[in-house]
Computed example of a mutant assay.
Amino acid sequence: MPPRAAPPASAVSPQAAAPVRRRSLAPLEPIGGRARVLLGLGFFVAFVLVWSIATLGGFVPPTFLASPVTMLKEGWMLFAEFGFIGDVGMTVWRVFGGFLLAAVLAVPLGIAMGTWKAVEAFFEPFVSFCRYLPASAFIPLLILWAGLGEMQKLLVIFIGSFFQIVLMVAVTVGGARRDLVEAAYTLGAKSRGIVARVLIPGAAPGIAETLRLVLGWAWTYVIVAELIGSSSGIGHMITDSQALLNTGQIIFGIIVIGVIGLVSDFAFKALNRRMFAWAAL
């Protein structure tokens, strides 16, 4: 039986020939980079607009919430007259110091737990238990053990970050594809080669993403550490401003933390994309 000829182009229905139109609001439908930026900025504009109407319009007393204009004036005064840049530098140093200390110790332990089930069985109950303990609850003990210096604040951030990183890295490494591991064994790889050439490279993008997320949590711990027994830092400034009922300085300090955290998050994302470009393919 001879093959059936394809129908002429004129016989194809317009519905079948027309390209499928993408709907921007469809579930899981991606949007362009420009639209993403505009939407993100649009929320901030709307937020500041509502804030301005509520404060400048007299709907909220300035004692409870300063206006955006007052907040900017107080922020300029902090930098110009009170050396706030030094407080910002101390807070950044504490965050990255405690976070790096936690990452250096937690990542190898998490890799070991994800690789060897005996190691996981030994450490996982204790790490899971400690993960639920609030870092702020350790502050009285840390003051007794380490005093009111920098070590106490670094340890608060360390405790808040270490156990989270360990478990998240262990889950990432333990979720490696079994077919890749079996293929490596088939090609003659030993246990050390499996870890070095299969598990760690495969989990590296996930580990980097874990570190990016936990770095955001570290910013919350540093403010808790600086609220008690500190003579410098953004948290110390917020405490002093609260005693003076200066909501403009309080809000400015909070916004500075958010801006620094957002910049560090974008930098982490860019570094991850550069280091692990193949992971997005």
Rank of each mutant, 00 (worst) to 15 (best):
P3K: 07
P3F: 13
A6P: 00
V12L: 15
S13Q: 09
Q15T: 14
A17T: 09
R22K: 12
S24T: 09
A26L: 08
P27N: 11
E29I: 01
P30M: 11
P30C: 11
G33F: 10
R34M: 07
L41W: 06
V48H: 06
W51E: 12
I53G: 10
I53W: 06
L56I: 11
F59W: 14
T63N: 14
F64K: 12
L65S: 09
P68N: 11
M71D: 03
L72W: 11
E74T: 01
M77H: 05
F79M: 09
A80L: 02
A80E: 11
G83V: 06
G83M: 00
F84W: 07
I85S: 14
G89E: 08
M90N: 00
T91Q: 11
V92N: 06
W93C: 03
F96R: 03
F96E: 06
G98H: 02
F99V: 04
L101I: 13
A103V: 13
A106I: 05
V107K: 05
A112R: 09
M113E: 08
G114N: 06
T115R: 06
K117I: 12
V119R: 01
E120W: 04
A121K: 08
F123E: 04
F126D: 07
C130G: 02
S136I: 15
A137R: 03
A137T: 10
F138R: 04
I143Q: 02
L148H: 03
E150T: 13
L154N: 01
I157M: 03
S161L: 08
F162K: 05
I165K: 01
L167D: 05
V169Q: 08
A170P: 04
V171G: 05
V173Y: 00
V173S: 08
G175P: 12
A176V: 15
R178G: 12
V181A: 09
E182D: 15
G188Y: 04
S191E: 15
I194H: 05
V195H: 00
A196M: 11
R197E: 15
A203K: 01
G206M: 13
L211G: 04
L213M: 13
L215I: 01
W217H: 03
A218G: 07
Y221K: 04
V224D: 10
A225F: 02
E226M: 09
L227Y: 07
G229S: 13
H236A: 04
H236L: 05
M237T: 15
T239V: 15
Q242S: 10
A243G: 13
N246G: 01
G248W: 02
G248C: 06
I250A: 04
V256I: 15
V256N: 01
G261L: 09
G261W: 01
L262A: 08
L262W: 14
D265Y: 14
A267Y: 02
A267S: 13
K269L: 12
A270T: 14
L271A: 15
N272W: 07
A277T: 08
A279D: 06
A280C: 00
L281P: 00
